[in-house]
Each structure stands twice: as C-alpha cells, then as structure tokens.
Design a protein around this nucleic acid. Sequence first.
DNA 1: CATACTGTTATATATCACTATAACAGTTGA
DNA 2: TCAACTGTTATAGTGATATATAACAGTATG
Lengths: 143, 143
Amino acid sequence: MLLRVDTTDAVPVYAQIVEQVKRAVAAGVLDAGDALPSLREMAMKLRINPLTVGRAYKQLEQEGLIETRHGLGSFVAGSAKSPAREFGRDAIARGIDRVLVDAMDLGVGFDEVREVFEERLRAAPQSLRGQAAGGDEVRDEDR
Amino acid sequence: MLLRVDTTDAVPVYAQIVEQVKRAVAAGVLDAGDALPSLREMAMKLRINPLTVGRAYKQLEQEGLIETRHGLGSFVAGSAKSPAREFGRDAIARGIDRVLVDAMDLGVGFDEVREVFEERLRAAPQSLRGQAAGGDEVRDEDR
DNA sequence: CATACTGTTATATATCACTATAACAGTTGA
DNA sequence: TCAACTGTTATAGTGATATATAACAGTATG
C-alpha cells in the first residue's frame, strides 16, 4: 500500500486518502479483510494529524468500503471487492474523457492529442518517477 | 466566452475562473485586447461574489495574462498570445500524465491504456456533448 | 491486572475560501 | 456636472480543513 499526500493541493488531504484507498482496493493492492494502517501510524508516516486520517477512514466506512472496529483497527470490507474490479478501466476512461474535453476547450485537435499521448507514454518510465516527488510519500510494506 | 463554475468542487472558484480564462485565451475564444466581463457582471451571472471574480482577475493580471484598468475594465494582454499557445499542449500533456499515474496506481497496463484511449477517441464526438452539463453555466455572447 | 496497542471524542487555534455590506476612486458620455 | 458604469479597498462573519493537545474507551496479550 503506497500513499502520497500533497498538503498544498486544493483537494483536502482526507479526500486524497479516501481516493487512494479506493484505488488500492480497485488495484487489488488491498484485499477484503486486509488491515489498513492505524490512524497514528499513517498520520506519522504522512506527517499529518491523526484526526485527518480518522476523518478519511470515517468517510470510507460510511461508503461501505471499509469496516472499522474500536480497539482493533480498520479493515477492507468483504463487499468492497466486486464493484472495485471495473473501477480501474472506468477510471482510466474517465481521465481520458477529461483530457479530450480539455482538448476541445483548448482548440487542440485530436491528432495532436494522440501525438502528445504517445510522446508522454514513451517518456513515462522516467517522467512518472519525477511526478511522484513533491508530496509526502509512504511505502507500506511491513504489515 | 463560456464559463462554468462549480461551488461544490474542492478547487476554489477563483481558481476555476483563472483556469477557464487561460483556456479561452489559448483556444482563441479571447483575443488580445478583448474585454472580460466586469466583476459585477460575471459575479451576477455565475451567482457568486464580485470579490471572488476580482481575486481571479488579480491573479490573472499578476501572471501577465490580462491587464486591468481602474474604471475601464479588464482586457486580454497583448503579450498573452505567445505564452498561451504553449498552454494548450502543456495542459493536454499534464492531463495525460495524470492518467498514466492513475494507470500505474490501478495496476492497468499501458497497452490497455492505449486501448481505452483509442476507444474513447472514437466515441468522442458523441460522449463529449453530454459531459458539458453540471455546474452553473454562463454563455457570454453580448459584449 | 497491566501494558500497549487500537479508535473516539473534546477543546482550542489557525488558515483559507467565500460571502455580505459598504464605501471609495477612476472613466466615460449625456 | 451628473449619472452610470468600471475596479479597489475595508470590515466582518461563516464554514471547511487541518493542527496541537489531551483525555477516554475498546481489544488483545503477557
């Protein structure tokens, strides 16, 4: 489970956590029953306040994605798996649609969009590493 | 000049305005010398506070994209054209990078991303029209 | 039972975005 | 000059986010 948080982003930190936990479940990085990092642990690694993590978990629970038990921790819900499978391809499609809408707004032709797409794809292995920087990052391998 | 604003979005309203004015300039919808809607006019149409529009214009002026004159209004700067040209392709590249990062997070292979990309590109003419809905909208034809 | 983890709650503080209201100042044209 | 537009500034209030600090409560294990 890998988490990045950017406190300078307009998107609230707790919302960033919610989004990324959803992704982790969708990607299969987190399976049903898996424990999430404790409030204090994640807060320490991300260098944010535990209450902020708690708020993210609270929302995830309200959405039924995780179950949280006092004194035990928070766990990926059993029912979280099924809707998550389609999430990946759908999320990509939504992202691409957003780019295409942008292209229309900007008066950039689709041919040029494809050009840029292939260009970024070629550059991906390098540029993506650069992109990861900036936010605080946590690699969670030791659970 | 068409503006959409969503007050429920995490992105501040003033930032949304800044972004969309940049797009309008980049797309050629606004040319150098063109007048922007007055603070009060745009505020009324978008149903937001004039100060919020003022904040957006202030930032646009600091970035050199517009020039604002007391008692007259705000106008697209003459020098705004050249940097705006790159804005389009850059914005597209940024959007694509975001999609590629998402793909990595979701465990979706780049080949599949390309597949989805071509698929959405083919579907674009229809699907893009539906996307424009949502948020308050202002079409500004009477200036 | 004591310890050490869990989540939960309360209080206070700070910052940012947005609003409401109001007044002030520059520009233009009747 | 006066009216009707422009942008500008000041003040105050609201809500959301995040912080620091602290205490409280459930669970498991030695």
